[in-house]
Design a protein around this nucleic acid. Structure first.
Lengths: 167, 167
DNA sequence: AAACACCGTTCACCGCGGCGAAACAGTGGC
DNA sequence: GCCACTGTTTCGCCGCGGTGAACGGTGTTT
């Protein structure tokens, strides 16, 4: 994802949008502006006038962060799925499913893999996995995470896409 | 955790130690030094000479990040829970519970952990903990602090969230 | 093209158990 | 005596996991 340069404090509205969408951004501070207070690792700032290599270094760092660590949610030891500062609590079965999906975030995980993970001794019903996936989908929707179906292959977890056209 | 100031590139050995231990650190760059390439969110840098408020702002940001992204409340020796300049008095049992929750602010604390903390000789009744958590919730609400239940796992203290969308 | 099996989504329902909340009572301090 | 603190009981909601069934899309067979 590209790093967006924002003049601060002039482009404050634009900054709020970028924070909402989680886009990496570098604030260019006026000579007299106060530094922002955000702790978001995808936001950085530099005061003008600035050395050009310093700007490039900060842009590169933000870009690197957005590729490596940003898009993947994280499940802590207590069954909490955390993403971009927010979290939801998962039930035990949902945790077992989500752990695999997060582990392969952005890639397909087979139904059998998920089923074995949640029910090592055999799936109770053919329907059980589907129902739990439905519940997991609804649970994580507020975080901006979605689970897509790949027919006859499995499921795929990713950052929520704007729902308008197909894929 | 305190933020460590490191001169760069002079104190390169010290920097390696700090990276190893995960201490938050701010690099003070010489006029001609190249910016470091670390993407670690607990490392930042600024080029000298720098505005003093800029240095303080970056130090504050690193400190906030090292504290689980959130400023935590504080309990003083007299059972006062302080947060953002305001405070409320806690009863002895509530203090015992709140100390653990503050200590792991933003993370889940198990019911058994809390129970052992408040009643080392055994919980009087199953519901005793629930009732005290209810009372603690109401007590700290005016401060903008809330205790969320994570079903079958425990409780979690955090800054109060706007109660509109999930979380 | 129609019929069919297969796969996946969604809903309604049930049993269980964790947890919330109110009401009440006992105790001790000021 | 008043009030804060603590513990107990009771009631009931609701989250969780499992099941059956209805519905719809897709690819295959006849």
């Amino acid at each position: 994802m590209d790093v967006v340069l924002v003049r601060w404090p002039e482009e404050d509205v634009r900054l709020l949008e970028l924070r909402e969408t989680g886009s990496p951004r570098l604030l260019l501070l006026n000579r007299e502006a106060e530094p922002p207070e955000s702790v978001d690792c995808l936001e950085d700032w530099i005061r003008l006038p600035a050395d050009d290599r310093d700007v490039r270094a900060r842009v590169a760092r933000l870009a690197s962060r957005s590729e490596t660590q940003q898009p993947a949610p994280h499940i802590d030891g207590d069954g909490l799925l955390r993403y971009r500062g927010r979290w939801v609590a998962l039930s035990p079965v949902e945790s077992a499913l989500a752990i695999k999906l997060v582990d392969r975030f952005g890639a397909v995980v087979g139904r059998d893999t998920l089923a074995r993970r949640a029910w090592p001794d055999g799936t109770p019903t053919r329907n059980a996995l589907d129902v739990h996936m439905l519940r997991l989908r609804r649970r994580i929707a507020p975080l901006g995470v979605e689970v897509r179906t790949v027919r006859s292959r499995g499921y795929l977890m990713q950052a929520a896409q704007p729902r308008a056209d197909a894929q």
